[in-house]
Computed example of a mutant assay.
Amino acid sequence: MAVGLVIIPTYNEIENIEAIINTVFDLKKDFHILVVDDNSPDGTAANVRELQNQYPDKLFLEVRMEKSGLGTAYIHGFKWALKRDYEYIFEMDADFSHRPADLLRLHRACLNGADMSIGSRYKRGVNVVNWPLSRILLSYGASFYVKIITGMRIHDPTAGFVCYHRKVLEAIDLDAVRFVGYAFQIEMKYRAYLKKFKIEEVSIIFTDRINGKSKMSSSIIWEAIYGVIGMRLRSLFSRNSFR
């Protein structure tokens, strides 16, 4: 039985996808991978299909018709996973900004009692490589802002390297999740926090991508800034939407 399912959302990741898949499957524990591709014009999905011949019954592919956002890709993957028997479901980027070897550490944290473990860039200082100072300040400042608004004591609420016990995803109304960009990561943690699941941060080193193009945009940043306030207000005055 697999340790868990690693969900990797992709859009134009042809330069990274084969290497990240091979690296995950080279780990000492048996992970399965689900790639959720947004119909990448660069042939990412075709590359995954070729690799499925090498990794039958452990590499899976879901292709959506268009680029619809990080959050909806993960929701698609979560629903796919919950229809199967995976006890642990992971989020991970395709570009090696998250070290595949750290999947083992996130899994260990959940085995030791966490319901949700987060690969944290800011638990012990700032552990980010190859980012300009402006982006570090933006990301670190956003994390501080989220803590103030939501009350969560999470050092890296925007982190996208996560392990969920399936009971967390089963408890969250996935159809009610609103955000589609990086604010999706904040909302998922906040929903888990309100349901009083045990959340633990695992310190990691985050390395900016070498190959491919970042999907960050100004609209994603503004979604996070303004959306967090709205999310907090909805949780206070419309608790049914966060049950």
Rank of each mutant, 00 (worst) to 15 (best):
K196N: 07
K67I: 00
V6H: 04
S214H: 05
A159L: 09
Y190R: 11
A81T: 02
F179H: 14
T10V: 09
R178M: 08
D38E: 11
L194D: 14
H76Q: 12
V168R: 05
A19I: 14
I229F: 11
F60P: 02
R153K: 12
D37F: 01
R191A: 00
R178P: 00
D38F: 03
D208H: 09
Y86I: 07
G160S: 12
C163A: 08
V228E: 08
A94E: 10
L51Q: 05
I33F: 01
P9S: 00
A183S: 07
E15Y: 08
A183K: 11
R124N: 08
N39P: 10
R191H: 00
Q52G: 05
K147L: 05
G230S: 13
L51F: 06
S68Q: 03
G4H: 01
V177P: 06
F96G: 05
M231F: 09
F31N: 02
S139T: 03
I221M: 04
D85E: 13
I14G: 09
Y145V: 05
A183Q: 13
M231K: 03
N39M: 04
R191C: 07
S238V: 06
V146W: 02
Q54N: 13
M231T: 09
L174T: 08
Y182H: 15
P100N: 05
I89H: 02
I220C: 08
K198A: 13
Y74S: 09
G181M: 04
P56N: 00
N127F: 02
D175M: 10
I220F: 06
G227H: 05
F78K: 02
G125S: 07
M1N: 14
I149F: 08
A183H: 07
V228H: 00
S218L: 12
Y86E: 08
G181L: 00
D115F: 06
L111P: 02
M1V: 03
K213R: 14
I148R: 10
E66F: 06
H98K: 15
I8N: 10
M92G: 00
V3L: 08
R153A: 13
L174I: 15
